[in-house]
């Protein structure tokens, strides 16, 4: 049952350090080590995820200074709460990106509530929303996947999903922007995401 031929090897190998292979540098592995308080693992995780966190904040908030501020909050929160990450409930990428998106959106909404934000979003056409997304895409494979998968959505599904995600709008706001019924938008968002999920899974 066991390979007992190995015999007692030399004791005192380095304390549980991750094997330096590709697998060890996954966000999940780095997040686990971050949870153990390893500064170096967090620094590596920063290098891996900061462009995603910062980029998303810029996209939602538009203002680079605010985006930088929120990105800092997000990344410190990742460090602080890495101990609560549960990989059974999702990937490290989803966990970190969710924190970033929520924080960015919360910032947008509190600014809206305070009434100090112009309703320029309403002025921007839905085409612009999508075009600037596409524009941001480079030759990276992932970009192509997401772009291709977004194209499998119906026009209304795609507009609803991108306005909500990149624009930081609630589904009710999206309904207003698209001049569509609120229940319709709710349904389109859900169907659109299901399609996106299926497409991305196939693409992997």
């Amino acid at each position: 049952m066991f390979d007992t031929g190995a015999g007692p090897g030399p004791r005192r190998e380095p304390r549980l350090t991750a094997v330096p292979d590709a697998g060890a540098a996954t966000p999940e592995a780095l997040l686990h080590r971050t949870a153990l308080g390893e500064d170096a693992a967090f620094a590596a995780l920063y290098d891996l995820m900061a462009p995603r966190v910062y980029g998303l904040c810029v996209r939602v908030l538009r203002d680079p200074a605010q985006a930088e501020e929120v990105a800092q909050e997000v990344l410190v929160e990742v460090w602080r709460t890495a101990t609560r990450f549960d990989e059974h409930r999702g990937s490290a990428g989803a966990w970190i990106t969710t924190i970033a998106h929520r924080r960015a959106v919360d910032r947008v909404r509190s600014a809206q509530a305070a009434g100090d934000r112009e309703r320029r979003a309403a002025a921007s056409s839905t085409e612009t929303e999508y075009d600037s997304v596409v524009e941001a895409a480079t030759s990276r494979l992932e970009h192509r996947q997401v772009r291709r998968c977004l194209k499998t959505l119906t026009e209304l599904q795609r507009q609803a999903v991108t306005l909500a995600y990149y624009g930081g709008h609630t589904y009710r706001q999206v309904a207003t922007l698209l001049e569509a019924a609120v229940p319709t938008v709710k349904t389109r968002i859900r169907d659109g995401l299901a399609k996106l999920r299926d497409c991305l899974e196939v693409a992997r």
Binding site: P51, E68, T97, V146, R197
Partner: peptide, 23 residues
């Protein structure tokens, strides 16, 4: 959970290099 795993990939197209000082 599945939708979340799809949603975060939307950030694939918004990657941007953060200012060096942020690190």
């Amino acid at each position: 959970g599945e939708l979340r795993e799809a949603v975060w990939r939307l950030s694939d197209v918004t990657l941007a290099e953060p200012p060096a000082a942020l690190r």
